[in-house]
Design a protein around this nucleic acid. Structure first.
Length: 930
RNA sequence: GGGCGAAUAGCUCAGUUGGUUAGAGCACCUGCCUUACACGCAGGGUGUCGGGGGUUCGAGUCCCUCUUCGCCCA
C-alpha cells in the first residue's frame, strides 16, 4: 500500500455491538427518556403531552419477535414526538400474568414431585414471589437492547402495592354500583389450570369429532323412543330431560312423557322448548344444565335439577345434586376415557343408533391448550352492558379510532353483543377478590360485601370476616393500565399531565382482552359532571400485524420458526432489526421474516446502517471538524443549483415523512374528523421516504456532486461544507426514530456539536424553504444528462472508466451546464464538447422528456439499427397514447362533462406529447437516411 | 352459522374523493474494485390490476355476480 488513504483510520462498517450498549446507557443516565409532569400543558407547562403505555409483557417472559415489532413501533412514535417538542412519555411495565406465571411455577415444583396443594396457599405464593424476584423483569433489560426509549423511572408492575390498590378501588366501586355480582351459571372450566375462564380466554378451535346418535326409550312403551344427537356422551349422566321443539310434529306425542336415560337408567321428562333447532342433529336434544351453557338456560326455564357429574379435574364423579346418577364403573374415569366407555357400553346395550363424523368447534384454555369443560359454578361477574354503551359510542363518533379501520367493525360487533365478564379465577397468584363474608352471620349481616381494607369488620354485626378465596382475572388489573400506572386513584400530577394517553399499540388478538376493557374502565373512572361519559384513555389504537415466517406461519415456540430479536441485535445491531421491522410492516400487514435466512431478512437494515455510516465517514474525512456556517446565513448567490436542489429535496422528504406519520392527535382535541380519521401512522412510508432521500438524493447525487467542491482550496468549499453538513444533519434527525443508535453516534461527530446535546432530544426537521425550485431544475437537467450518457454507455457496453465525448442541445438550462461541466463529466465518464464537435452520423442519442437531446460520439461502434429500434419503440408507444388522448379530447362528451381542470391538463399533455413525437420522428428520419 | 376484509410485478405491498403512459421495496438480469461504502456503483420493468357483467366522457378505484383466500365471533 503506497498511499494509505485516511479513510482507513475509520472502519468502513458500523460496529453496533461495540457502541450501542454504552450509548443506551448514556441516554438513560442523561435522563433523555424522562418526561416531567410539570412540562405538560395540562399542568400549565409548555409542551403537549404525548403518551403511550406499553402493553405490559408477562413479568417472567422473554423478548420475542412480537415484542420486538410492537415496541419498535411505539419507540418510533415516542422518539418522533419527543423530537417534535412534545413531553413524550412511554410508560413501561410488566404484568403478573396470573395463570401463566402460576403454571410456570407449578411446573417447577412438579419437578420436585409436589403440587400447589402440598405447599398450601401461603407457601406457594411465597414460591411464586421468589421466582418473580429471580427471573422477573428480564424482558425490560432486553427492551433496552433494541433501543426502547421508555421512561424507566416510571416502570410499573400490575401486582405492585400501588396498582393493587387501584384494582381494589375499582372493584369496590363497581361492586357498590351493582356492576359486580355473584353469578351461578355455566362457565368455561380448565381442568388443568383448575380455574374458571372468561369467554375470551376459552379459544375456539375448529375440530373434527364424532356425533353420537343415542336412543332413549319411552317409559312404559319400549317400542317407542327418541333419538338424541350429542358429541359428548359422557355428559349423559347429567341429563335431566330431553327437549324438542314444540312445533316439531315428529315429537308432539312425546311431550310430557318420560324416557329412560340409557346411561344410568333414570327416568327423565320430555320437554318442549323453542331453543331446540328442528334441523340440527335428530331434532331432539338432551339437556345437561350443569355442563352446557344453553342447556343451563333451558334448565332454568323448566326448573330442572342441575347435577354436576364432572369433578374439577375433569373426572366423572357425582358432584352437587348428582347423587345416584353415575353408575360405579364410570366414577373416576377421565372425561375422554368416559366418552369412549359410555359409547361402547351404549353400543353393546343397543342404544347407540349410529355415529357420524362431525365438524365443530372445541374451546381450549388460552394458557395451556386443554379442552375446557362447561361447568356450573359460582363466579364473580362484571355486568358489561352499562360499561359498553359509552365505549361503543366513543368509537362510533371518532373519539377513538382503530387502525387498520376494519377492526372498528369487529370492535363494534363485540360491544353490541357483549356478555358479562367472569372475573374470578380459582388460582392463587393474583389480586384476591376483595369480597368478605361474615364469620358468624346473623340477621342484618350482608351475605357478602366488598372492602378496600384487608381485614374489615362485618358491617352488620361488626364481627370478624373472611375473604373470598378467588383471585381476579389478570386482565382485570391490565384494564386499568392507562391510569393505574399514572397514580390513579390518587389525583397525582402524573395523572393530570398524562391521562388521557395518545396511541395504544398492540396486537389484534388482545383487542377484547385488553383494549376494549381499558376503554370501558377508563371512561368509567373519569366520569364527571362536565363529561358524564368519561374520558377515553387514548385517541388511537394501532393494531400491528403478526410476525410470520416465509410460509406465512405465525412464529411460535412450538413450530421452532421464531427469530430471537436479541440474536438479530447481536449479529446486525438494533438499528438493523428496527429498520427491517418498520420498513417491512405496512399498516395492518403481517411482518414476514425467513427464520432460515435471517441474514437475508435483516440485510436491508444492516446495509442501510452501513450506508449511513459511510456517508458519515466521507463527511468527516472531507469536511473536517471545523464549524460550518448555518445554511440560513448563506446568501442565495453563494448557492449553486445542486445546493438548491438538495435543500428542496430535504423539504420534500420532511413533508413526505410528516404526511406519513400524520397528525399526532385529533386537531380539535376531541374526535377524529372523517378527513383525518385514517391519516398517519404509516411508518413504512415514513421510513421509505427518509431512506430514499438519504440514499438516492443525498448520497447518490449531492454528495457525489460535492466531491469536487470540497477539494482543499476550492472557492466553494465552505458553501459545500455548510450545505452538506446541514443536509446530513437533517437526514440523521429524520432517521433517528427508526435507527436511533447509528444516527446518534454519527450526529455526535458532526462539526460544531456542543457537549450534552443529544440527537434524541434534537428538533425534528422543519421545512427550511431554502431551495429555489428554478435553480434546482438546472441540477435536474444535469442529472438527466448524466443518466442518459450512462445509459448509452451501458447499452453499448462501454465501461465507466472509458471516457466518451458527449454533448447536449435544446434547452436554456444547458448554459449553466457548459459553464460547470465537471459534475456531469465525472458522473457519466464523458467529456462535454460543443454540439458541432459531434457528428450526428456517428452518435447515439437520447431525447429527454424536457426536450433536451443528448448525443454521445461512438465512432465506429454506433449501431443504427439499435438506435432506430430504440427511438422507434418509443415513438410507437407514444403515438398510441397520443391517439387515445386525442380521441378523448375530440369527444364532445369528455370536454363538456369532465372538470375543466382535467380537460386543461389533457390539452397541455397533448401539446407536450405531440412535440416529443415530432422530435422523435424527425430523429428517426435522419437516422434512416444515414 | 353470524360479521368483516382481501385478490395489482417472482415475493411483500402502495395506489387518498373515479382523471399522467399503474408505482415502491425485496428478488432477478447485465456491466463495474469510478480512492465513503462490493453491506457498494451504474444500467435494465419483468403487469390481461382474480373471472364475468354493469354504471360513466373516463374504472385498478364505484355497483352486481362468480371464484379463491384471510380475520373476528359462534
Amino acid at each position: 500500500m503506497a498511499n494509505e488513504s485516511p479513510a482507513d483510520e475509520i472502519p468502513s462498517r458500523y460496529d453496533a455491538s461495540q457502541s450501542d450498549p454504552a450509548l443506551y446507557q448514556a441516554w438513560e443516565n442523561g435522563g433523555v427518556f424522562r418526561a416531567e409532569a410539570s412540562d405538560s400543558k395540562r399542568n400549565g407547562g409548555p409542551a403537549d403531552p404525548y403518551v403511550i403505555v406499553m402493553p405490559p409483557p408477562n413479568v417472567t417472559g422473554v423478548l420475542h419477535m412480537g415484542h420486538g415489532l410492537n415496541n419498535t413501533v411505539q419507540d418510533v412514535l415516542i422518539r418522533w414526538r419527543r423530537m417534535c417538542g412534545d413531553t413524550a412519555l412511554w410508560v413501561p411495565g410488566t404484568d403478573h400474568a396470573g395463570i401463566a406465571t402460576q403454571n410456570v411455577v407449578e411446573k417447577l415444583i412438579a419437578k420436585e414431585g409436589k403440587t400447589r396443594d402440598d405447599l398450601g396457599r401461603e407457601a406457594f405464593l411465597k414460591r411464586v414471589e421468589e421466582f418473580v424476584a429471580e427471573k422477573g423483569g428480564v424482558i425490560l433489560k432486553q427492551l433496552r437492547a433494541i433501543g426502547a426509549s421508555a421512561d424507566w423511572t416510571r416502570t410499573a408492575y400490575s401486582f405492585s402495592p400501588e396498582l393493587s390498590r387501584a384494582v381494589r378501588e375499582i372493584f369496590v366501586r363497581w361492586y357498590e354500583d351493582g356492576l359486580i355480582y355473584r353469578g351461578h351459571r355455566v362457565t368455561h372450566w380448565c381442568s388443568r389450570c383448575l380455574t374458571a375462564l372468561s369467554d375470551e380466554e376459552a379459544e375456539s378451535h375448529p375440530a373434527q369429532g364424532l356425533m353420537y346418535h343415542i336412543r332413549y326409550l319411552l317409559v312404559g312403551d319400549a317400542s317407542k323412543s327418541i333419538v338424541v344427537a350429542t358429541t359428548r356422551p359422557e355428559t349423559l349422566f347429567g341429563d335431566v330431560a330431553v327437549a324438542v321443539n314444540p312445533a316439531d310434529e315428529r315429537f308432539t306425542a312425546f311431550i310430557g312423557t318420560r324416557v329412560i336415560n340409557p346411561a344410568n337408567g333414570l327416568e327423565i321428562p320430555v320437554i318442549a322448548d323453542d331453543y331446540v333447532d328442528k334441523e340440527f342433529g335428530t331434532g331432539a336434544l338432551k339437556i345437561t344444565p350443569a355442563h352446557d351453557a344453553n342447556d343451563f338456560e333451558v334448565g332454568k326455564r323448566h326448573k330442572l335439577a342441575m347435577p354436576i357429574i364432572l369433578d374439577p379435574h375433569g373426572m366423572v364423579a357425582e358432584g352437587a345434586d348428582a347423587a345416584g346418577r353415575v353408575p360405579a364403573p364410570y366414577a373416576g374415569l377421565d372425561r375422554f376415557d368416559a366418552r369412549k366407555r359410555v359409547a361402547k357400553d351404549l353400543d353393546k346395550a343397543g342404544a347407540m343408533v349410529k355415529t357420524e363424523q362431525h365438524h365443530n368447534a372445541v374451546r381450549r384454555c388460552y394458557r395451556c391448550d386443554t379442552v375446557v369443560e362447561p361447568r356450573l359454578s359460582d363466579q364473580w361477574f362484571v355486568k358489561m352492558a352499562p360499561l359498553a354503551a359509552p365505549a361503543l359510542a366513543a368509537v362510533k363518533d371518532g373519539r377513538i379510532r382503530i387502525l387498520p379501520e376494519r377492526w372498528e367493525a369487529v370492535y363494534v360487533n363485540w360491544m353490541e353483543n357483549i356478555r358479562d365478564w367472569n372475573i374470578s379465577r380459582q388460582i392463587w397468584w393474583g389480586h384476591r377478590v376483595p369480597v368478605f363474608y361474615c364469620l358468624s352471620p346473623k340477621a342484618g349481616c350482608p351475605a357478602h360485601f366488598a372492602s378496600r381494607d384487608d381485614a374489615p369488620r362485618c358491617p352488620g354485626c361488626s364481627g370478624g370476616t373472611r375473604q373470598d378465596n378467588d383471585v381476579l382475572d389478570t386482565w382485570f388489573s391490565s384494564q386499568l393500565w392507562p391510569f393505574s400506572t399514572l397514580g390513579w386513584p390518587d389525583k397525582t400530577p402524573d395523572l393530570g399531565a398524562f391521562y388521557p394517553t395518545d396511541v395504544l399499540v398492540t396486537a389484534p388478538e388482545i383487542l377484547f382482552f385488553w383494549v376494549a376493557r381499558m376503554v370501558m374502565s377508563g371512561m368509567y373512572v373519569t366520569r364527571s359532571e362536565e363529561k358524564p361519559e368519561g374520558v377515553v384513555p387514548f385517541h388511537s389504537v394501532y393494531l400491528t400485524g403478526t410476525a410470520r415466517d416465509a410460509q406465512h406461519r405465525r412464529m411460535s415456540k412450538s413450530l421452532g420458526n421464531g427469530i430471537d430479536p436479541l440474536d438479530v441485535v447481536a449479529l446486525y445491531g438494533a438499528d438493523a432489526l428496527r429498520w427491517t421491522v418498520i420498513a417491512g410492516m405496512g399498516i395492518g400487514t403481517d411482518l414476514l421474516l425467513d427464520h432460515e435466512h435471517i441474514d437475508q431478512s435483516f440485510a436491508p437494515g444492516r446495509n442501510f446502517a452501513t450506508k449511513l455510516w459511510n456517508i458519515g465517514r466521507f463527511l468527516l474525512l472531507q469536511v473536517g471538524a471545523e464549524p460550518v456556517k448555518p445554511v440560513a446565513s448563506l446568501s442565495p448567490h453563494e448557492l449553486i443549483s445542486a445546493d438548491h436542489w438538495i435543500l428542496a429535496r430535504i423539504d420534500a422528504a420532511v413533508a413526505a415523512s410528516n404526511a406519513a406519520l400524520g397528525p399526532p392527535r385529533p386537531r380539535d382535541g376531541g374526535a377524529w374528523s372523517d378527513s383525518e380519521h385514517k391519516l398517519g401512522l404509516r411508518l413504512d412510508e415514513y421510513a421509505e421516504s427518509a431512506r430514499a432521500f438519504v440514499w438516492n438524493d443525498l448520497a447518490d447525487w449531492y454528495l457525489e456532486h460535492a466531491k469536487t467542491r470540497l477539494a482543499p482550496g476550492h472557492p466553494e468549499r465552505e458553501t459545500a461544507r455548510a450545505v452538506l453538513v446541514h443536509a446530513f444533519d437533517q437526514a440523521l434527525r429524520l432517521l433517528h426514530p427508526v435507527m436511533p443508535f447509528v444516527t446518534e453516534t454519527l450526529w455526535q461527530k458532526l462539526p460544531g456539536r456542543g457537549a450534552d446535546e443529544w440527537l434524541a432530544q434534537a428538533a425534528w426537521p422543519s421545512r427550511g424553504g431554502h431551495g429555489d425550485a428554478k435553480a434546482a431544475a438546472a441540477f435536474d437537467a444535469e442529472r438527466a444528462g448524466a443518466t442518459a450518457i450512462r445509459e448509452i454507455k451501458s447499452q453499448y457496453g462501454i465501461p465507466h472508466s472509458q471516457t466518451v465525448q458527449a454533448t447536449m442541445t435544446g434547452s436554456a438550462v444547458l448554459e449553466h451546464l457548459f459553464k460547470y461541466p465537471d459534475f456531469v463529466q465525472k458522473a457519466s465518464g464523458a467529456t462535454l464538447v460543443a454540439p458541432d464537435q459531434i457528428r450526428e452520423e456517428t452518435a447515439a442519442r437520447r431525447i429527454l422528456p424536457n426536450g433536451i437531446e443528448v448525443l454521445v460520439a461512438l465512432d465506429g461502434i454506433v449501431d443504427f439499427a439499435k438506435e432506430r429500434e430504440k427511438l422507434g419503440t418509443e415513438l410507437t408507444e407514444l403515438t398510441k397514447q397520443l391517439g387515445a388522448l386525442r380521441g378523448r379530447l375530440g369527444n364532445e362528451k369528455f370536454t363538456s362533462k369532465a372538470p375543466p381542470a382535467i380537460v386543461e391538463a389533457e390539452r397541455a399533455k397533448e401539446a407536450e406529447w405531440a412535440a416529443r413525437a415530432e422530435q422523435l420522428a424527425s430523429k428517426l428520419q435522419s437516422l434512416g437516411s444515414a
